[in-house]
Amino acid sequence: VVEAIKDLVQDCNFDCNDDGIQLQAMDNSHVALVSMKLSTGAFSPFRCDRNIALGINLNSLMKVLRAAGNDDILTLKAEDQPDSLNLVFESPGQDRMSEYDIKLMDIDQEHLGIPETEYAATISLPSAEFQRICRDLSALSESVSIEASKDGVKFSCSGDIGNGSVTLRPHTNVEDESKSTSIALTEPVNLTFSLKYLVNFCKASSLSGSVQLCLSNEVPLLVEFKMGAGYLRFYLAPKIGD
């Protein structure tokens, strides 16, 4: 998760309570927002005696996380009114244990209320497919138009060297649900977004085999990666003509 969001947001409050750990942060330009939840089910055990916000610089956290092995067990600990976060990595065979403390920061973060939205279009597709489309089209243009209709979803762009588009039609993969593409539509939508941000969101592709795009005309796009016990959501403000 940290790897997926660290290029978008730098200083974040990890809000801890009985439900687990949540994070909401906007990028500096106020165009994209990250919303993450790791429920208690993601941890074993999980204990939180008092609601607490852990202000963490993600670059610092990455420096420490890089010291962990892929299969290590990670324990995160913070005291009441902490000035640091304690991280312990234990190898699966328990023959190696490393321990780090990183300094916490006071982060005065703007919190946005995200209204419950009935989206006009909800598209589910393999996350690798979405990543490929964003990467391919970003070579041609800064922006992509996403047009969803009952026939399919069309990603199109135009730039100095020419233009391009990718159209996906609904498709069911019976062996692997995450490789399916589905489109639920109440009305057609057509919106334009910055590809730079979408390419950035796709760094979360390794967290989930499929991704959900939720769109309504003239509202921010929701890109959701569902995780075993939580989610990573990105909101992106659209580009709108005058």
């Binding site: 946005l112 209320g113 995200i114 921010p220 909101y235 403000a237 580009k239 003509g241 005058d242």
Partner: peptide, 14 residues
């Protein structure tokens, strides 16, 4: 071309 909007256009601070 179309202009990039801010999230503040759509979401309120709480």
């Amino acid at each position: 071309g179309p202009k990039q909007r801010s999230l503040f256009t759509f979401f309120q601070k709480v």
